[in-house]
Amino acid sequence: MAKAKITFEDIEQTVSVPAGTRVIEVSERIGAGIIYGCREGDCGTCMMHVLEGWNNLTEPSVLEEKVLKENMAGRHDRLACQAQIIGDCKVKPA
């Protein structure tokens, strides 16, 4: 299975994961500072800032785009409960 590395900048920790893993699955287990609310892409609580590897996360769905807009997301912000890791990237809590 293809692997990818995700780095959580706030705790300076890198994890090697199977491609397709959602950020939420890794960040909760590792204790990174991204915080979750509904866990289903609706509330915007888990907004994270993508520092590197923007294109190494799956593209946001129409629903995620809408929630990002409602929560006044910045240019490189994503929802950690929705984004799947498909290549190396670095993130931090937004």
Binding site: K5, I11, Q13, T14, V15, S16, V26
Partner: peptide
Amino acid sequence: VLVGKPQEKGVIDFADL
């Protein structure tokens, strides 16, 4: 962690979590 002291860490494998 509370005072922000960096911990020694390498790359962790997801399977080990």
